[in-house]
Design a protein around this nucleic acid. Sequence first.
DNA 1: GCCGACTCTTAATGTAATCTTAAAGGATTC
DNA 2: GAATCCTTTAAGATTACATTAAGAGTCGGC
Lengths: 228, 228
Amino acid sequence: MERILIVDDDPQIREVIRTHIEQSGMHALEAESGRQAIEQLESEQVDIIILDLMMDDRDGFEVLRYLHTRRLDIMTIVVSARRQEQDKITTLGLGADDYMTKPFSPMELMARIQAVLRRRYPKSSHSSLVLRLSPMILDIDNYTLLIYNEKISLTMIENGLMQLFMQNPDRVMTKIEIYQQVWQHERYDDNNLSVYISRLRKQLEQAQSSWEIQTVRGVGYRLTGAGI
Amino acid sequence: MERILIVDDDPQIREVIRTHIEQSGMHALEAESGRQAIEQLESEQVDIIILDLMMDDRDGFEVLRYLHTRRLDIMTIVVSARRQEQDKITTLGLGADDYMTKPFSPMELMARIQAVLRRRYPKSSHSSLVLRLSPMILDIDNYTLLIYNEKISLTMIENGLMQLFMQNPDRVMTKIEIYQQVWQHERYDDNNLSVYISRLRKQLEQAQSSWEIQTVRGVGYRLTGAGI
DNA sequence: GCCGACTCTTAATGTAATCTTAAAGGATTC
DNA sequence: GAATCCTTTAAGATTACATTAAGAGTCGGC
């Protein structure tokens, strides 16, 4: 089982990320500072680190340095608030394997973890994540939805939404739930979501999927249909 | 299984090379100095050595001398920072079988390893250096892409990109993944990549290939088309 | 060793996909 | 039937990407 170390000083963010990691069948470890992270690294076996560079004490860089000087061979996904390209360059130069800016959606983070794992263990059983709900097959890594051999290319948000729905078939997902998982900023916008629901519905209908997205008024949406 | 000894004092470079070697189903050994390399050679069976001559202590030459005096029959690919080094190697008759200058792409290195292996074991079935995705044939060794009998000469980077795409048809390659595989860490640059994508697209279109490079916004690119 | 050709990088500008917002019209509930 | 919530369309904003051209660095030829 893959072991992921989450390094972030915001317990809420750690919590969200941990939930997703555990849902994907991986093991989550946490650290709220660079110092704690290094302690963990000394005592625990870790495959991937998700590292916030912009922590209060700014000691995220310490972790990167530690990895480098100790020649530890651990894949690192760096998260930072700054959007400047410069950061991306210097961070990757410090040996990070991927880079994201805040705010990011948990769905996107999971996609990146999968990508990193795939790169890392190419031959092993990290079959790219595929969700099947006949006749739909969602290839999460590949941002494509296959319905009856019709291939639909999805955008990042469409992909996130479909993933959420297909992981929870026939279950009502509240709008807040959806927004937190797909968008991550809780300043949620009803309208925006419903625009995307509309788009997805159109695509499902066009491909004649036997699944449909139902509205539950005042609550959220539910993917249902087929034999259910 | 072929056993490749990587001799380089930069652990990051060793890591990159090792990953590629293992992805190709070969076994990687490492040494961070000429002295260590010689130790390895005394205790381990090795088929190919990838040797950096420009290590801190400059004792890469020691390894070549060692091979020569012990009459060890091990193919050697020499990596050096300067073009002039090559002259030194050949004039001294130290017997390197191939050479590369830094920086090199991991893809190129793998191609050279394959070439050396083929020269070495001509009869055996080493994966040919040709990738086929009808109607395209990429001759990696030869830096040429054949589309419908039209021969297109590729540069090193174009070659690396095509190799990556053709090894992963219909799969999204993230930009970071691409950069790490084709460019080898260095500085990550969005723009540079998109310039090359543009070039490749032009060439594919001009040759009327049935394959095209799709953009997946915010993620990367995907080679798709033909029967897929 | 200098020059020209070629490749790779950088910069600058144009373009278009995606995401968001707004607005008007339907549906649903009370 | 009024209020609320949802759908849909389209236009607006934003950002990522595409493209072109020019600059920097290399390499080989002479």
